Amino acid sequence: MLEIKKYGAIDIGSNAVRLLVANVIIEKGKEPKFKKSALIRVPIRLGADAFVNGKISEENTIRMIDAMEAFKLLIKIHGVERYKACATSAMREAENGQDVAKKILKKTGIKIDIINGKEEARIISSTDLKELIQSDKSYLYVDVGGGSTEFTVFTEGKIVNSKSFKMGTVRLLNNTKSENKVKFKSVEKWIKENTKDFKSISLIGSGGNINKLFKMSGRTEGNPISYIYLNAQYQFLKKMSYQDRITELSLNPDRADVIVPATKIYLSAMKWSGARKIFVPKIGLSDGIIKSLHYNKL
């Protein structure tokens, strides 16, 4: 007998807000299949508020309320039976983050859970990530967001260590060069300490920027990007102006600036861990929310 359930996940990040609607296909005696039905992305850059001014602006609060109202209607239209909204670093660092969440709940009826870095990493790791990991190999999982980056080391199919750093793309754009240098140094130290015992390691990358880079590479799903290719792409993107990235590469305005610091993070992680390739499975927080809802872990 076939059963199809429909779930929704709202991911409130530092660079954008997303709604993922997914079907969970259940057949007796088989593992459930998770299939994306719709993905809507709204470029509300909360990190530009939180990391510079320490609070979410009134303008972005109104945009958030409008976005949640729209998401609520889409959830209804799609016939979603359960959904969850989670906010990450921008909302948790903004001094009025909780107040904004309360205002959104009052206006829209959508309850937002502001989660910490460890909870974010836990939800992401509940995705199909483990199915991609070969039991006899080692991996460094890197999830780059607007406000933070999560690093997780896997070996023999098990998590060895994980850490969340306040080093996201929006934050890097708004910090001074000296501040960013300190951030990169602390990440370099952690990666080297936690990967030094592995002769061979590969990266697994997640986040909107690495997905875009993978699409731009023209590679088919399952084939990794090499360090040489990513380095060449980084040099190419860095030399281009913001305007040219929009007009020549057809990048969205809110992607055209953050893609450069994001590429630097992935490239640096590869260099410091000794990885020569990065796999891009197109998974993230919203996928983890869907899976956690299905297994009643949220």
Score class of each variant (00 low, 15 high):
290 I>S: 04
136 D>G: 05
162 S>P: 02
111 K>Y: 06
289 I>P: 01
278 I>L: 14
195 T>W: 04
115 I>G: 00
174 N>K: 10
81 E>G: 12
122 R>E: 15
80 V>E: 03
296 N>W: 04
132 L>G: 11
31 E>P: 00
83 Y>L: 05
273 S>G: 02
285 L>K: 06
225 I>R: 10
27 E>G: 00
112 I>T: 05
31 E>Q: 12
238 K>T: 14
88 T>Y: 09
245 R>G: 05
158 K>M: 06
19 L>V: 06
233 Q>K: 15
228 I>K: 10
266 Y>N: 11
282 K>M: 13
48 A>M: 07
33 K>T: 10
25 I>P: 01
245 R>I: 06
72 K>V: 04
4 I>R: 05
69 E>S: 01
256 A>H: 04
7 Y>G: 00
122 R>A: 14
264 K>C: 12
121 A>M: 03
49 D>N: 13
101 A>C: 11
144 V>G: 03
288 G>E: 12
13 G>Q: 08
83 Y>K: 05
26 I>R: 09
254 D>N: 08
170 V>P: 10
209 N>Q: 01
193 E>Y: 01
202 S>Y: 03
199 K>P: 07
130 K>I: 12
1 M>V: 06
135 S>R: 13
242 Y>S: 02
263 T>M: 08
160 V>W: 01
251 L>D: 01
37 S>E: 14
89 S>L: 09
213 L>S: 03
251 L>I: 13
287 D>S: 04
253 P>M: 07
191 I>D: 04
43 P>M: 14
115 I>F: 03
285 L>W: 07
110 I>P: 00
243 Q>D: 01
14 S>H: 08
140 L>Y: 09
87 A>D: 02
70 A>F: 12
10 I>V: 12
222 G>I: 11
203 L>W: 07
74 L>F: 06
136 D>L: 07
154 F>K: 02
73 L>Q: 11
131 E>N: 11
241 S>T: 15
157 G>V: 12
244 D>P: 05
120 E>L: 04
262 A>S: 14
176 T>I: 07
242 Y>Q: 02
233 Q>Y: 07
33 K>C: 04
27 E>P: 00
96 N>G: 09
71 F>D: 02
130 K>T: 13
83 Y>Q: 00
11 D>R: 08
203 L>M: 09
242 Y>N: 04
171 R>T: 09
158 K>Y: 08
85 A>S: 11
221 E>V: 11
24 V>D: 01
249 L>V: 07
237 L>A: 09
5 K>A: 06
168 G>Q: 10
1 M>D: 01
238 K>E: 11
168 G>V: 11
110 I>V: 13
28 K>H: 07
128 D>W: 02
23 N>T: 08
131 E>S: 12
46 L>C: 14
49 D>G: 08
10 I>T: 03
145 G>V: 11
228 I>E: 10
276 R>W: 08
44 I>V: 14
287 D>F: 08
230 L>F: 10
88 T>C: 05
45 R>T: 15
11 D>T: 09
293 L>R: 10
26 I>Y: 08
159 I>R: 07
192 K>N: 05
236 F>K: 13
154 F>E: 03
234 Y>P: 01
38 A>V: 13
289 I>A: 08
92 R>W: 15
202 S>A: 11
169 T>L: 04
200 S>W: 04
174 N>S: 12
183 K>A: 13
143 D>F: 09
164 S>N: 13
61 T>I: 06
179 E>G: 08
119 E>L: 08
62 I>G: 00
289 I>M: 11
228 I>C: 00
